[in-house]
Simulated scan of single mutants.
Amino acid sequence: MPPTSSILHGNNLDILASLPDESITVVYIDPPFNTGRTQNRHTTTGVRSKPGFSGSVGFQGKSYQRIRGELRAYDDSFDDYWRFLEPRLLEAWRLLAEDGTLYLHLDYREAHYAKVMLDAIFGRECFLNELIWAYDYGAKSTRRWPTKHDTILVYVKDPAKYHFDSSAVDREPYMAPGLVTPEKAERGKLPTDVWWHTIVSPTGKEKTGYPTQKPVGILRRIIAASSREGDWVLDFFAGSGTTGDAARQLGRNFLLVDRNPQAIEVMRARLGDDVHYREFPESEPA
């Protein structure tokens, strides 16, 4: 592990392979939606997987390998996305500590594929939540219900040992405050699995200019609930660095990984020169 919070520039699969087992408390990743359908990225071999992983997990009486084959037949562009995401999720499983939690942020087009993968990699008993981040901004379709939410799948390394502290998270206003006592209305309620939160304002101070930037409030809630001060938080599709910003505000250590020079530039400007930076040379394609 690096000696301090760090920005790591390079291929995330290569960098993940260099990190020690069970060293991370929270992994949050927001991979590019539909990445495998529009880009060809190489994967490396030799990723250490969960023992007995291949074909070992049942789903309605079917093996993991059979599910993968059926999805491949259903959608002939599925293979690219699966090959891109699967080895990275295996590394996330390896890196999580026993009390660790994975948050995988996706849109509606890929969430069902990823759910099958995560059930197989982590085990269905390790599924904790499907979070819905709902917002109301942007164009409105008149030919279908407008799509205004993202999905965040939450899995834990060990369902008997994971850390979760609901008292540490921010509270929300009651939608009907007149139905509760004034004391409860003033305090607010604990969030459920549906989070109403605005996007990053195009004119707000939080805006970095990075196109896929997520609100720091979303990451603060995740990190506050699933880690403690001094724990390590990892984001290996780090983009604008929101995960690092939230982790630092909460007193956590963080590792931010990205291969995009624009993302690295935005993160270094946002987080300052006191954050350790290291560049990893790209490995040769397999």
Rank of each mutant, 00 (worst) to 15 (best):
H197N: 06
I218H: 03
P191A: 08
S226L: 10
N260W: 05
K214D: 01
V257C: 00
D235R: 03
W196M: 06
G244N: 05
K214S: 05
N253C: 11
Q213P: 06
L255E: 00
I264R: 01
G239Y: 10
S227R: 00
E206Q: 11
S201P: 06
Q213V: 11
W232D: 03
Q249T: 09
L250G: 06
P191M: 11
P281M: 01
T192Q: 13
L234T: 03
K205Y: 02
A247V: 11
L250M: 09
V200P: 02
D273F: 03
Y277W: 08
L256V: 09
H276N: 01
N260C: 11
P281G: 00
I218R: 05
Q213W: 07
G230M: 08
D274K: 13
T212Q: 06
S227I: 03
P202Q: 11
L219W: 09
T192R: 15
R221M: 11
V194E: 04
F280W: 08
P261M: 10
F280A: 02
I222P: 02
T198F: 08
S227N: 00
E279H: 03
E265P: 04
P261I: 13
D245W: 09
Y277A: 05
V266H: 00
E229S: 09
E186P: 08
S201T: 10
A225R: 12
E229R: 12
A238N: 04
Y277T: 07
Q262A: 14
G204F: 15
A225T: 13
A224F: 12
G230D: 03
K207R: 15
H276Q: 01
A263F: 07
L190W: 00
D231T: 14
V266Q: 01
D245K: 12
E229M: 10
I223Y: 02
G272D: 01
P215I: 15
E206G: 03
N260G: 04
P191I: 14
Q213E: 10
P281W: 00
T198L: 08
P211G: 13
T192W: 10
G217V: 15
T212E: 04
D235S: 07
R221H: 07
G230K: 06
N260T: 10
Q262F: 13
G209I: 15
S226N: 04
E206Y: 04
V233Y: 01
I222G: 04
E229Y: 03
G209R: 15
G241Y: 06
G244F: 07
R268G: 07
G272Q: 01
R221V: 09
